[in-house]
Amino acid sequence: MTRWVLTGTDGSPRSESAVRWAAEEAVRRGTGLRILHARPWPDTAYAHGSLASDLRPAALRALAETAERVRRAHPGLLVETAVVDEDPADALLSAAKGQELLVLGSRGLGGFAGLLVGSVGLAVAARVDVPLVLVRSNGTAEPEDAGPARREIVVGVDGHHASEAVLDFAFAEAARRGARLRAVHGWDLVPAWTAAGWVPPQVNATTREATEQAALAKALAGAHAAHPDVDLVAETRLGGAAHAVVAASAGADLVVVGRRDRHHPVGIRLGSVAHAVLHHSAAPVAVVPHG
């Protein structure tokens, strides 16, 4: 076995929720599970007291207890653990190289639908070179309840520039789960601006929608042919890509979006759609990097 489902834990309820999700996914994929705990330990000057000697054994004990809970829940699943003396984002990015999948926890939906992904999750999502799943937590070790499960995967699709990697991931995940795949393409009527101000789009909405539906069907054809048993629903929604995917996420088991590798003067950054979906989706989100 050369590829693993990797997950990170810091002992918080949201990371425990991610561990549970990752273990179930490892069983579905027939891989093992690696659980990583990473933290920058106190430097030598700070560590002369008892704090440094207490931290590592406590982390090792907590990690061993987490692994044992997973083994009891999934007999036969191969589980490995590691404690790394490194910044969490850097450690996760390094450990994820060449692995099947990375799974992390994120804050659950609270009193406002925004800012749901912590700094580590965003840093990793922008740079990791394998698919990443961010799992919502409701403050306990259970994944957040986004409503009645309907055994459905949602994938956001750019009908005119679809990514094979994103579609292959979404179709394969739907096939593993025996779930319906809902492919969503959002589009907008773009207004024009003149010296006199805003001018409504001079486009027939019905004609434009037919064009977008045809583009979506064409984009999905190859991946669907490779997974003919997957129940596919293709839909276009007026209102933009991020809005369309977030609206479809309610009740889904997983939402899949792409992350194009765009190099920015200050580093790789998430695209606007992936960023919005990560913050606002009601379901776990898979971010799939692609060229």
Rank of each mutant, 00 (worst) to 15 (best):
W4V: 06
S12M: 04
R14W: 00
A18S: 03
V19T: 09
E25V: 02
V27M: 14
V27S: 10
G32P: 02
R34S: 14
R39Y: 13
S53N: 09
P57V: 05
A59L: 13
A67E: 12
E68Y: 01
E68P: 01
R71Q: 12
R71V: 10
A82F: 04
V83K: 06
V83H: 10
A91Q: 12
A96C: 00
G105L: 04
R107T: 03
G110W: 06
G118P: 02
G121K: 08
G121E: 08
P131M: 00
P131W: 02
V133S: 02
L134F: 02
R136E: 06
A141S: 11
D145G: 03
A146T: 07
I153W: 01
V154W: 03
V154R: 03
V154F: 01
G156D: 08
V157Q: 10
V157A: 10
D168R: 13
F171E: 09
E173P: 05
R176D: 12
R177I: 04
R180W: 03
A183P: 01
P191F: 04
T194G: 14
T194C: 05
W198R: 14
W198E: 14
W198S: 13
P200N: 11
Q202V: 14
A205R: 15
T206L: 11
R208I: 01
T211P: 00
A215N: 12
A215F: 09
A217Q: 15
A221H: 14
A221L: 05
D231C: 02
V233A: 13
V233I: 14
E235W: 04
A244H: 07
A248I: 05
A250C: 08
L254S: 01
V266S: 13
G267P: 04
I268C: 05
R269L: 14
R269Y: 00
R269W: 00
L270M: 15
G271K: 08
S272Q: 13
V277K: 06
L278G: 02
H280V: 07
P284Q: 12
V285E: 05
V288R: 05
H290L: 07
